[in-house]
Design a protein around this nucleic acid. Structure first.
Lengths: 200, 200
DNA sequence: GTCTATATGGCGATAGAC
DNA sequence: GTCTATCGCCATATAGAC
């Protein structure tokens, strides 16, 4: 579509990716979309609403897939691998999400929580899945919450910390970092599964 | 010391812990310290300088210990355990650090990097340590940078994501979350070391 | 050193003409 | 629907009396 609304939406997405929620300026979005600042308000009322529209659009495509995955009959290893694959893909396509959440979380925690719940996100499903695997002796004894947080950490943190990791660890080369993130689709599941194996 | 300056410093630390950098208001700090807003500027020039003073003070006590650890003659396992212990203690005592860095990173990346470099932080020492361990066959083959980022992720992310983790995963009970973080001093090294073990 | 009062600037948001 | 002009707020920062 080539409507003004969709033009705004696309541009906003790019600006949010580049600058985050706080960093992004309505003026900036307007300039880049080649329209007037007031039009942003005409279509989206407030900056926050505009952001949430962008944010929700990204997540709306992710959550159903994640849900489907959790309800599938794949083995644990495949679920972990697929889930992390899905998650990292989501974040690579929408790199503004981690920093948005981690910044917004301090300003308006309830808002963020509502955002998630409104989308139907329910991490406790993952919790019971892990408990079952432990009970059935498929993986070693581990606190399910520790594992969940570990997984989320390893997926989300590197995206949020990108601006500091690139210069301090990746020689200021964004392409190397991009490859690094790509390879995490394999590295993270490997890392986790090796840790969960029950040794003979 | 009971000088006005130290009173400001202590109060600012608490407010930053509670509200983060963006969330903290100069007025709030002044009120809580029982002094006038202008005095903050008298002693620290700007809000940012005040924050950096607090921030650097926290890190100044950490980095030398971390450095000492890396140069010690402990075995790899003990170094990992001690390092993570140290790191989580630092973050528990200064829970504003993760969200500060992750927010500030977007607003002023160079500033944050300078901050670290100015303190003498050098993560590449850790990098060579890991490479050596792999070469010597003490741990399995793994990309050193992947491992470093995994460690940092698992230590830092949960602190930054606290306001969303507590209601969504920990039943809104901060004490449970506190215990969760405490036990990560053991859980994270266990998790990592189990993953790095070379299987017979 | 400490206060009151005020300046300054940025940015989101709105009014209102066309 | 789209624009120009402007409001209103808030937070940092400063001037200047005491």
């Amino acid at each position: 579509m080539d409507t003004t609304e969709s033009k705004i939406f696309e541009t906003a997405k790019n600006v949010f990716i580049r600058s985050g929620l706080e960093g992004a300026r309505m003026q900036e979005i307007a300039d880049e979309a080649g329209i007037n600042k007031s039009l942003l308000h005409y279509y989206f009322r407030t900056k926050e609403k505009l952001f949430k529209a962008v944010f929700q659009y990204a997540f709306k495509r992710f959550l159903p897939k994640a849900d489907e995955l959790l309800n599938s009959d794949l083995c644990f290893e495949e679920r972990i691998r697929n889930f992390i694959n899905l998650y990292i893909d989501l974040l690579l396509e929408n790199p503004f999400i981690p920093s948005f959440i981690l910044c917004e979380i301090n300003r308006d925690p309830e808002g963020v929580i509502e955002l998630f719940k409104g989308l139907g996100s329910n991490p406790m499903k993952f919790d019971t899945l892990i408990r079952e695997e432990v009970e059935q002796g498929n993986i070693r004894q581990i606190d399910s919450k520790q594992l969940i947080v570990n997984i989320l950490s390893m997926c989300i943190f590197p995206m949020a910390a990108r601006p500091i990791l690139v210069p301090m660890i990746f020689n200021n080369d964004p392409r190397v970092f991009k490859k690094f993130l790509e390879s995490r689709k394999k590295e993270i599941p490997d890392f986790i599964l090796k840790s969960l194996v029950i040794k003979e």
